[in-house]
Nucleic acid binder design. Structure first.
Length: 945
RNA sequence: ACCGAAAUGGCGGAAUGGUAGACGCGCUGGACUCAAAAUCCAGUAUGGUUAAACAUGUGAGGGUUCGAGUCCCUCUUUCGGUACCA
């Protein structure tokens, strides 16, 4: 009789729940291990088989560590604020609170089916006021701190205010983008509003002008995601950049620490590189160029001040504040047109298109600081307003983008670095020419000298520039954390008192878009104006607010007095292993590191980094089956994939099909039969009169012969509703059981690789679990394992497996450990092993992978204690020792023979005896042996001339 | 365009610079069965052969090495990210 997974899984799920076997105490007597999953956004679609991949891996680690004696924190929660719930509410009227609760309930149910050992009593939900109270609290701490550049840490803004009172900006070491200067008297003379505005230059949470994607037709701000090809995805309306006052976080003040502390992390080099490149530290000079006929100066940053004599034009971003005044009357129309064109383009469009170079002359000129030449000022979209100062000096001789631009607009190109023919124009090898006082210097020396001169002439200074920007922290949305601040009549910002928090998001009966770019909170009239003359902030915080510190709340989730108690923060400290998708490689991970460091400066967290080790699981993709449609055909004509080569690429379109309706899907012979074509037409009634064409002829559904088939095209891609290829874990578990599902997910391939899901392959793992069960139980569930003492061979098989599985878990190589379990079971069955001793060790070894069946077997074997609380097996080398070894014998690196000899045979004997083997001799006739390479215990290679 | 990753049989994949294709799916043949399912046994990279020998083979092209799927260079394709999807 086979394993009844439905019954057994329910039994143990209930048992574990009742006995709280997953409960994790803050038990400081045991060593801690914190393994964390990136918590999901609870989407309406529920989990598909791709989501749990990382959760299962972390679950195996967590169970393994627990069996090794650690106190393991392995929690789960929800990143529950977000745009989709709000969009859903606007479209359907279902309030985000309701849809989010429903979605979370469904996620919990699905996660529990998989047998993940989460301690749900520690659940963290970002939209829970008891949680976001502390998100708001951290925000206010950011608001009330500045970054001190000598102490290199965040300090209370009150200290800075005292400094301003005493000395103004004299000897003030506060991080800021602006270089405003004032005396103590000037500070004292400032009005409250002016003081507030000044302090905004230093606060770690501050307000500034930011740009949003404004869609007039929809009356709302759009996420980048909601824009396709420059127009709104919904409705195809025009989108433009609009400036608005926005909250921002001064992450740039932490740029150096975020960069240097990467070195201490056990993250993959590729991940660290992505973070390094995202921070993008570059050193150079900040310079001010005089503008002809203006008091103002154009501020630019360059990494190549050595090429200052190669400047032939300046370029400013279309959003640059000087655009208006630099534009001369003659250029006015052209500039206006150009600015309008660029405002409809995304940053991605602007930097990604190499072919079309666009720009427009302002009509104004800068003055070269050293030779007094006139330098035309141009506007182009390849300069981004958010990066650097939004303006550059263009050196077309030594920058490819500047060169392309110069060629297009016939601007002069001056070579100022002597280079050999082959070197790239941007290369820093060579000496400076055509450059007055820099002539003859190698580039690196010229950079130093030019900065020195720039400083001496007071036209600039040395500067480290970061690509990292202070990202926008405001969203014109309802479903997010409200800002715990209010504004007085002057518009000055005041933080709320701690005892008034959380500032609860007001309930709106109906979510509708706001007016004039405001969030839907504009409709919460009473809430928005708490007392006469005061108004609340109507924007809410972005998704990354709640996710930047949630890992700390798990340590002590019920604390009403602090974000987490000192004791819990001291005990759990940081995350030992963090598993999640690469899509969070920079965004989430950078902000979480930033907040963690800030909290460290405040003395709250005990480590400088939140995530010691990071692993990115790959995406599980779906199989997409498409039918091929000839574009613009009338009536619509579908062709067999085998005929597709007769048509040019741009004449055909791929229409995704429900995978289940395709015969032999994911093979070269995938096709729709007549039944499948019926199904397709039923789901897409527009195509009811379409023609289906294959080698055997062309038909409509009405005259189609019975055996007609049309080939479909298989590809691998996202698992999504759109492609009708979503596989739900519930269905798989229902049919095969959670243990099989877990092991199959792991068996698919390396955790970090992306790979397609195909449920067909699961029968291999399912067969394994059945075989495994039958090793313990005969007919009628009777135990067949006996007290026989294990044989040497059985022990060798078992311990080989123990060794492999332990090292695989350490390396997160779960696909190979599943293989070794299969090999072990196959071999033990071949030996007809019944030894209870061997089998119960194997059962413990398998427990983290297959928690249900192992728990059931453990009980049937007469154990009282849960298998998951027993010790994890370790191997003994003594069972693995063999006195023979099989050498592959190669001739010139190509294997020709296998040779089994005593392990102790010395190298000299191996070398002489190998040549006597008949299988080898035939290769040696008439040739000279150059040398013999012997790697003891591994291989032999005979090198011939 | 930029940053990062990947590419191995029909499919998912295995392989400290040392026997390419473990393990599993699929397929083929066989056993059991009235039959099917389930289960079990055998085979399965390609070419070649009754079988073997042998030759070829890890996206493409070069290189380093006694020996390269693995290291280096160039390229192609696919995937993730590019700051308001999460």
């Amino acid at each position: 009789m086979d394993f009844n997974h439905k019954e057994v899984e329910k039994k143990w799920r209930d048992y574990w729940f009742e006995h709280e076997t997953n409960h994790v105490p803050n038990d400081i007597s045991k060593p801690k291990f914190y393994v964390l999953d990136m918590f999901p956004y609870p989407s309406g679609a529920g989990l598909h088989v791709g989501h749990p991949l990382g959760y299962i891996a972390s679950d195996i680690i967590a169970r393994h560590k627990r069996m090794q004696g650690y106190n393991v924190l392995h929690p789960m929660g929800f990143d529950a604020f977000g745009l989709p719930a709000e969009q859903y509410a606007i479209q359907t009227g279902v309030h985000p609170e309701v849809s989010t609760q429903n979605n979370m309930a469904r996620y919990r149910e699905q996660l529990n089916l998989i047998g993940l050992n989460y301690d749900w009593s520690r659940e963290v939900i970002t939209c829970d006021p008891q949680y976001y109270k502390w998100t708001q609290w951290i925000f206010l701490k950011l608001f009330s701190h500045y970054y001190n550049t000598t102490e290199n840490k965040a300090k209370p803004i009150e200290e800075l205010i005292q400094h301003f009172k005493k000395a103004g900006t004299e000897a003030c070491y506060a991080f800021s983008d602006s270089d405003i200067a004032f005396t103590s008297q000037e500070w004292k003379n400032k009005s409250a509003k002016e003081k507030d505005e000044t302090l905004m230059n230093y606060r770690l949470a501050y307000r500034k002008q930011g740009f949003v994607n404004w869609c007039e037709a929809l009356g709302t701000v759009l996420a980048n995601d909601e824009i396709k090809d420059g127009v709104s995805e919904r409705g195809g309306h025009p989108v433009e950049k609009k400036a608005m006052m926005q909250w921002a976080l001064r992450i740039t003040s932490y740029a150096d620490r975020l960069l240097s502390d990467l070195d201490q992390l056990a993250w993959s080099d590729s991940m660290k590189n992505m973070q390094r490149n995202w921070i993008g530290k570059s050193s150079g000079a900040q310079m001010f160029f005089d503008i002809e006929g203006s008091e103002k100066k154009l501020e630019i940053f360059t990494t190549r001040p050595d090429t200052i004599f190669g400047v032939s034009f300046m370029v400013i971003a279309p959003e640059h504040e000087f655009v208006k005044e630099l534009t001369t009357p003659e250029q006015k129309i052209l500039v206006a047109e150009y600015v309008e064109y660029t405002s409809s383009r995304s940053d991605l469009d602007r930097i990604s298109e190499k072919k079309s170079i666009t720009g427009c002359f302002t009509g104004s000129y800068c003055i070269h600081p050293f030779n007094g030449n006139k330098i035309p000022i141009w506007i182009s979209e390849y300069v981004l307003i958010d990066y650097g100062t939004g303006a550059i000096m263009a050196v077309p001789g030594h920058d490819t983008r500047d060169r392309d631009f110069a060629k297009k607009f016939n601007l002069s190109i001056t070579q100022v670095v002597q280079q050999d023919e082959e070197s790239e124009i941007e290369s820093k090898s060579g000496v400076i020419i055509n450059s007055d006082f820099l002539n003859g210097l190698p580039v690196h020396e010229a950079i130093e000298k030019s900065i020195h001169e720039i400083k001496t002439k007071s036209i600039g200074f040395r500067k480290n520039q970061f690509r990292l920007r202070d990202a926008n922290f405001s969203r014109q949305r309802y479903w997010g954390e409200p800002f715990p601040v209010y504004y007085d009549q002057e518009g000055t910002c005041h933080p709320m008192k701690e005892d008034q928090m959380p500032l609860i998001l007001p309930h709106l009966e109906k979510i509708t878009v706001g007016t004039e770019g405001k969030s839907p909170l504009v409709h919460a009239k009473e809430w928005a104006n708490p007392s006469s003359g005061t108004t609340r902030e109507l924007d809410t915080m972005p998704g990354y607010a709640g996710s930047s510190w949630y890992f700390l709340r798990y340590m002590n989730p019920d604390n009403h007095l602090e974000l987490a108690s000192k004791e819990s923060l001291h005990y759990w400290q940081d995350v030992d292993l963090y598993i999640g998708g690469t899509e969070h490689a920079v965004g989430h991970l950078m902000y979480a590191r930033f907040w963690h460091k800030f909290l460290y400066d405040l003395g709250i967290t005990t480590t400088v980094e939140p995530f010691k080790k990071l692993v990115n699981q790959g995406m599980i993709q779906g199989i997409i089956e498409n039918i091929i449609l000839i574009k613009d055909s009338s009536p619509s004509t579908f062709i067999s994939a085998s005929l597709a080569n007769d048509y040019p690429e741009d004449k055909i379109a791929h229409i995704p099909l429900f995978t289940g309706s395709v015969k032999n899907y994911n093979t070269a012979d995938s096709h729709l039969d007549k039944e499948g074509i019926h199904y397709f037409i039923n789901s897409k009634p527009d195509f009811v009169n379409s023609i289906f064409k294959s080698e055997s002829g062309e038909y409509t559904i009405n005259n189609m012969p019975e055996g007609f088939t049309i080939k479909t095209k298989s590809e691998v891609g996202k698992m999504s509703k759109r492609y009708h290829n979503v596989v739900n874990p519930d269905d798989v578990i229902n049919e095969y059981g959670a243990d099989v599902f877990r092991m199959y997910e792991m068996f698919l391939g390396p955790l970090e690789d992306s790979k397609p899901w195909d449920t067909k392959g699961i029968t291999g793992v399912s067969g394994f679990i059945k075989k495994y069960y039958r090793m313990f139980f005969g007919e009628n569930q009777t135990i067949i394992a006996d007290e026989s003492s294990p044989t040497k061979e059985e022990l060798k098989i078992l311990h080989t497996c123990i060794k492999k599985v332990n090292s695989d878990i350490e390396n997160l190589s779960f696909n190979t450990s599943v293989s070794s379990f299969m090999i072990c079971v196959n071999e033990l069955r071949r030996l007809n092993c019944k030894s209870k001793e061997v089998l119960s060790i194997l059962n413990r070894l398998l427990a983290p992978f297959a928690p249900f069946i192992t728990e059931e077997i453990n009980e049937k074997l007469g154990n009282k204690e849960s298998v998951h609380h027993q010790a994890y097996p370790t191997h003994s080398e003594e069972y693995l020792i063999s006195d023979e070894v099989t050498y592959p014998v190669s001739i010139n690196g190509k294997k020709r023979h296998e040779w089994t000899v005593s392990k102790s045979k010395p190298q000299s004997e191996l070398e002489s005896e190998v040549l006597q083997l008949t299988e080898i001799q035939k290769w040696l006739e008439g040739v000279t042996i150059k040398k013999i390479i012997v790697v003891q215990g591994r291989m032999i290679n005979i090198v011939l001339t």
